[in-house]
């Protein structure tokens, strides 16, 4: 039986790194979108309170989220 352990280890390291990049890119974008969404929530809330009603409670932003057409 030939000694090919090194190549096996190399193969699995590369395979798992690539798998990690594939899945990680999705996870990473999820996170960055979550940050953007939080920022948008904030902006929408501040805009709502600035334009329509200064005493609007912060949960008005959730109404704005629901207004987006669902698919």
């Amino acid at each position: 039986m030939p000694d090919t352990l090194d190549y096996m280890i190399l193969g699995y390291v590369v395979a798992f790194v690539l798998l990690g990049i594939t899945i990680g890119s999705v996870v990473w974008r999820y996170r960055s979108y979550a940050k953007t969404e939080a920022l948008l929530d904030q902006l929408e809330a501040s805009e709502q309170s600035a334009t329509s009603n200064p005493s609007t409670p912060p949960n008005a932003s959730s109404a704005a989220t629901n207004a987006v057409p669902s698919r």
Binding site: M1, D3, T4, L5, G11
Partner: peptide, 19 residues
């Protein structure tokens, strides 16, 4: 277990085909 003619490297094969 490791495969007879190829040794340990044969284990790559499972992931290779799976991917």
């Amino acid at each position: 277990g490791p495969e007879q003619t190829q040794g340990e490297v044969q284990r790559i094969f499972y992931t290779h085909l799976g991917a």
